[in-house]
């Protein structure tokens, strides 16, 4: 039982970061109507920025994290300007193919710049293991879970209470009507990508001490992000959180009780189960098209 609790917390910790990544993926999906395949690789680039600032340059963490976020947001905005923007008026399939291309380019660029080996990332939240009865808790896990929860609350507040958040929701519901309200689509597009990249960077920094930093780290995490999005319901914000947490839990529990060899496969099993029973995702809504 104690072990089970420990594994659940481990799973929720991982899951909260998947949830943050998936929220970033979903705001792009709902505002821009496109699946951003390169989300995991954007996270990877953010983790490398953090590695440079925190480890190589030895900057304090509270400087290194904001700097990494800023750099990664700029990278994302350049990609948006050069690769995605010319394709908005074309078919969505082209845009999807383009994001796959961007994903490959980012991975290879990272190998050119930072090399192909994996780098250790020291823990940002040191501290002794906490005993509560027979349960052992790693402070880092609790911190990461806390950061995840705070980010989810902040995002929710932003979407519900600010003018820009409301505009992003309006754009996702009805693009042309939002334009008729005077929403500047270019600004909203850039804010969407910027927020998404910023959230991915934070998740990357949090995950870096656990999974290490390497050029292909975005591949398996990116796949889990897309699984979380589909499991929770594409474009749904509560769905992204639920999907992320479930994927984290399934991965941790499966790894403990079945075998770590198939760690990557458990989320896929979850995906299959959900798709067979609820194709629109657990919290997703069926699209009703009025004629």
């Amino acid at each position: 039982m104690n072990l089970f609790l420990q594994i659940c917390i481990q799973g929720l910790m991982l899951g909260s970061m998947y949830a943050i990544l998936t929220l970033g993926y979903n705001i792009i999906y709902s505002t821009m109507g496109m699946a951003h395949y390169a989300q995991g690789d954007i996270m990877m680039v953010g983790a490398f920025f953090a590695l440079d600032f925190f480890v190589t340059m030895d900057l304090p963490i509270y400087v290194a994290i904001p700097l990494s976020v800023i750099c990664n947001v700029l990278v994302m905005l350049v990609i948006e300007r050069l690769a995605y923007r010319p394709l908005y008026s074309r078919s969505r399939t082209l845009l999807l193919l383009c994001t796959i291309g961007v994903s490959t380019v980012l991975r290879n660029a990272a190998q050119l710049i930072w090399g192909t080996q994996s780098f250790n990332f020291p823990t940002i939240f040191p501290g002794d293991i906490i005993h509560i009865g027979e349960v052992y808790l790693v402070p880092q896990n609790l911190w990461i879970l806390g950061v995840g929860v705070v980010m989810m609350l902040l995002l929710n507040l932003f979407m519900k209470k600010t003018k820009v958040g409301r505009a992003m929701q309006a754009v996702s519901m009805n693009r042309s009507a939002a334009a008729l309200m005077g929403v500047n689509m270019q600004t909203i597009t850039m804010i969407t990508y910027g927020m998404s990249a910023g959230m991915a960077t934070l998740a990357g920094v949090m995950l870096a001490p656990i999974v290490k930093v390497y050029s292909t780290m975005g591949v398996s995490i990116g796949a889990k992000v897309m699984i979380s999005a589909v499991v929770g319901g594409m474009g749904s914000m509560p769905g992204a959180i639920l999907g992320g947490l479930l994927v984290g839990l399934v991965e941790a529990l499966g790894g403990m009780y079945i075998s770590t060899t198939f760690k990557e496969a458990y989320p896929v099993v979850l995906l299959l189960v959900v798709l067979l029973n609820r194709p629109q995702g657990i919290l997703g809504r069926k699209k009703v098209v009025k004629v």
Binding site: R166, A170, M173, S176, A177, L180
Partner: peptide, 11 residues
């Protein structure tokens, strides 16, 4: 005021 009203249904 666009054709078909186009209100933001989930706001």
């Amino acid at each position: 005021v666009p054709e078909g009203r186009q209100v933001f249904s989930e706001l």
